[in-house]
Design a protein around this nucleic acid. Structure first.
Lengths: 337, 337
DNA sequence: TTGTATGCGTTATCAT
DNA sequence: ATGATAACGCATACAA
């Protein structure tokens, strides 16, 4: 029932092609004609059919966003909405739309091939990729332009990320400089690149500072609050005087464990997190943490992807965004001054 | 470069139409032929082009999800990801895809007409609608099947929601039954239906219990933590002994204000929230709150919408899901028995 | 500068 | 049960 180019053409007394030219900002249209056609288009609120356009051009002006929900933590961190907002903003500006796929592990393989081969999207942003994610292989085989959010060892060229290792190093060094001696870490899942990288940053800082790496002060969480709590609880008997936690959400859990053990933050245990989620400034005590420019990450990833799509060339793009250590009370900066 | 029906046809020695029939599970295909064709399809990982199919059928098997980001609170509540997951799950099951539109107020009008008229989607789920949202008018004018998440006075028939008023009433009644006399409320923004409904539930409970409605015990937040904090701080001088807060996030802010005033929860002030976001069980003290089945809401909304699309009839659907009052320490249930 | 004709990859209608 | 062919709505090469 919606109008077609043909209708607009008839209504404005020109041919279908001319209307098409007007819509696509073709220069070869007389100003007069253009105005006439635009008037009709406006008054009827005409919108060209994207499926037809897609068929004719081979492009859809849609990018896919793939998020593996097996990593369930995305639902407790605000990381995910901010990311989407960044992507969405970039797409609005460039006149693209966003197709969202939340892949549960069960249907993942099937969905991936649909995503890559049914022509719905011109490119994909893939977030929260696992180290052994089956999508890796498919992505390499396909011709689909893509950008990863977070780096991946096997898909080297095409990603956007912060330097997790560097940021973790800085965070840990901050604790070192405050004079802490028994600096622990709660690392994230080691099947995610961020988990691995942040852990390595911690190790590097300790090593460089000639501080011993004590296995009993290294525990692993799963990026959940409860995981952070459990990890910290296990670790408290080894008397850490500081802890670098690989995510703010886990840091909350860790702080809860410290409180329940009747220890003080930061006097007994200094805590540094990672992410700077909105609530971290409001935590008790406010959490020292690494700020990632999350919505900017989504934005840039989408921008780069769209450039990739529109340029047609298959260059590899790596984009590294800066982080910032946000110092707050939880690590005692205000006390040890 | 991807394969087409024609390619598959040639490869398996049948006609294009037969391949199409196989793909669409048409009964009029000999078993033998079907197997033969399927083998080719599988071995080449053929995926039919959705744009072409969309053109031919007039349907895309895509539903749109529209979320107004003017309501910025969605980025601090996990409400939003859970919703999307529910929608996404329903779509996976029914073989639909999800197109996501985060509309910022600036581009909203323009986007809406694109959403409704360019044929990208078969229907839309609209979340977080404001009472005066311009999308209301467009939705009414268009023929697009839609489902609202949250009710709206002018779009009566087509929504899915919980009974916010009833739930708020129950929550407040809980405080009444605990013997609290000066029960305050921090309501949400009154330009959102949930804000209004939850406020009315509070009023109803007070009135029915012959408790006076005291204006000084009614403040308004904006669904943010800081908003809850400010509201509570303003209100503390009027000595509430309990507060019903229209969202958990605001409740956290309120509890922070109570703590900072050196008052005890629940002894001095009992707190009840709304949402039961994952962290509420871990708050100090754990927060009594109203649980909404959020991901179920997304799921059901998408299901109903898809039914609407596929049946072709324009019936109105209202779906009300149940809530549950989750009693935890913050309202003193465990103390007063 | 504009119009005509063709093709994009499906589905659907009609034959056979 | 299968094949030929005409839409679907647009972009685009070519003609004028």
């Amino acid at each position: 029932m919606p109008l077609t180019l043909e209708d607009i053409a008839r209504l404005s007394g020109v041919s279908r092609s001319t209307v098409s030219r007007v819509i696509n900002d073709d220069v070869n249209v007389k100003d007069n004609t253009r105005r006439k056609v635009l008037a009709v288009i406006d008054s009827y609120h005409f919108q060209p059919n994207m499926a037809a356009r897609g068929l004719a051009t081979g492009r859809t002006n849609v990018i896919g966003v793939v998020i593996a929900t097996g990593v369930s933590v995305i639902f407790t961190d605000p990381y995910f909405p901010f990311l989407l907002q960044g992507i969405s903003t970039a797409c609005n500006v460039r006149n693209y739309s966003v197709m969202l796929w939340l892949t549960d592990p069960e249907h993942e393989k099937n969905m991936i091939s649909r995503i890559l081969y049914n022509g719905l999207v011109d490119g994909v942003v893939v977030a929260n990729i696992l180290i052994n994610d089956p999508i890796i292989k498919s992505l390499k085989e396909s011709k689909m332009p893509f950008m990863l959010l977070g780096s991946h060892p096997e898909l080297e060229g095409n990603y956007l990320d912060v330097d997790n290792q560097l940021a973790a190093w800085k965070a840990t060094m901050h604790l070192v400089r405050l004079g802490r001696k028994r600096i622990a870490t709660i690392c994230g899942s080691q099947d995610q690149v961020v988990g691995v990288d942040r852990y390595h940053g911690y190790l590097k800082a300790l090593t460089e500072s000639d501080l011993p790496v004590r296995p009993e002060l290294i525990t692993q969480g799963d990026f959940t609050e409860q995981g952070g709590f459990n990890a910290m609880q296990r670790m408290l008997k080894y008397k850490p005087d500081a802890v670098f936690v690989a995510s703010d959400t886990m840091a909350y859990g860790a702080m809860r464990a410290v409180r329940e053990a009747k220890l003080r933050i930061p006097e007994d245990v200094a805590v540094v997190g990672f992410d700077d989620i909105p609530t971290s400034a409001k935590a008790t005590p406010p959490l020292t943490t690494v700020r990632q420019p999350i919505s900017q990450m989504g934005n840039r990833a989408a921008e780069v992807l769209i450039d990739l799509i529109e340029s047609g060339v298959r260059t590899t793009n790596k984009v590294i965004l800066d982080t910032e250590l946000v110092v707050r009370e939880s690590c005692g900066a205000f006390n040890t001054g």
